[in-house]
Simulated assay, not measured.
Amino acid sequence: MGYYTPAGGLPPQTDLLTDRAVVKLAYTFIPKGVLRDIVTSSLPGFTDTRAWVIARPTPSSATTFSQLIVEIAPGGGAPKPEVEAGVEGVVFVTTGALTLTLEGEQHVLEEGGYAFIAPGAQWSLANEGDEVTSFHWIRKAYEFLDGVAAPASFVTRDQDIEPVAMPDTDGVWATTRFSDASDMAHDMQVNIVTFQPGGSIPFAETHVMEHGLFVLQGKAVYRLNDDWVECEAGDYMLLRAFCPQACYAGGPEPFRYLLYKDMNRQIRLT
C-alpha cells in the first residue's frame, strides 16, 4: 500500500507554464506539480522541518480547518507542535517513521500511521530515523458542547481498520473510518475513501460539510461544481460547503484519498 508524498524540487526552465491549478468560489484545486521547494514554510518550534500549507482559513480556502504536509529530516521535530489552546489535530504519515510522544506515551508511526490529537493534549514529534518522514497535519479549533466531554486522543493505522463498504455498491466504494461519526464528541472526521477502478459517486453530493481531499493513490475524474477535473495521486481538492461533487475512478489501481469533513454541530448564527 503506497501513499503519494511530495518531494519538492523545481521544474526545468524548459517546462511550459500551463498547469491544472484552479481557484474558484466553490472549490480550489492544487495539483501535485505546485508542491515545490519555493512554496514551503518553516514552522515555529520545529527544527529541520518544512511544510506545504494546502488549506487555511481564508475567503478563497477553508473556513473550518487548516491542512499541512510536513516533512521532517532525521534529527528534526518539535517539543510542542501545537501552540494554540483548544485546537485538535490529526496526523497521518505517508512515508518514513515519526516518533509521537502523546500524554507521556511514545508511539512510532510508520506509513499509514494515524493519530487523533485531542484539544489540550500534551504531545511532541521527532524523526529519530535515518530517512525523511512526511505526514499530513490537519488542525481544527474544537467546538465544545455542554455536557459532552471532548474525545480522547488515540493512535491507530490505516492497515488495521477494515473499510466499510457504502450500501449497494458491491464494495467498489468504501471508507476507512478512524472514528465513529455518530459520536457527538467528534466535530470532525479525517477518513480514507477508496474506490476500486470503475467505482463512482453516482450523484452530485451537495452538502453543508466542507472537504479537504488529498489523493493518496490512483486517478479519477472528479465533478467539482460544474467542472469535470482529472485528478491523480498527489493532487489536493478543497471543496467549500454545498459544492456539488461526484467522481468516476480510473484504473489500473484503486483510487484513494484522505478526506476531512466537519460535522455534528449546529450552525452558528450569532
Rank of each mutant, 00 (worst) to 15 (best):
V208P: 07
L98R: 04
T49K: 07
L269M: 15
E232T: 08
A150H: 04
A152P: 06
E210L: 06
G112Y: 00
P31G: 04
W137C: 00
T133C: 14
A241S: 14
A55S: 10
G2R: 14
G86T: 06
A165V: 03
D183Q: 07
M263C: 03
M237V: 11
E128T: 10
Q196W: 14
D168M: 14
P163M: 03
G198K: 13
G113E: 00
F65M: 03
C231N: 04
V22T: 05
Q67G: 06
V83L: 15
P12L: 05
M237F: 13
Q266C: 03
Y257A: 02
D37M: 11
L125D: 04
A21C: 13
V87G: 06
E230G: 10
P79F: 04
H136A: 07
H136N: 09
E131S: 12
I192V: 14
I54N: 08
T133M: 06
G199I: 01
D37E: 10
L100N: 10
P252N: 13
Y27C: 01
V155N: 01
Y4C: 04
T94V: 15
G120A: 09
G112E: 00
W52I: 11
S66C: 06
Q13W: 11
T28Q: 10
R177A: 01
L213G: 04
S61G: 05
G86C: 08
T99S: 14
K140N: 09
G251H: 10
F144R: 15
V87E: 09
R223D: 07
T64F: 12
T176I: 05
V190Q: 00
L16P: 05
E88I: 04
V34C: 05
E232C: 08
T133H: 10
K261D: 02
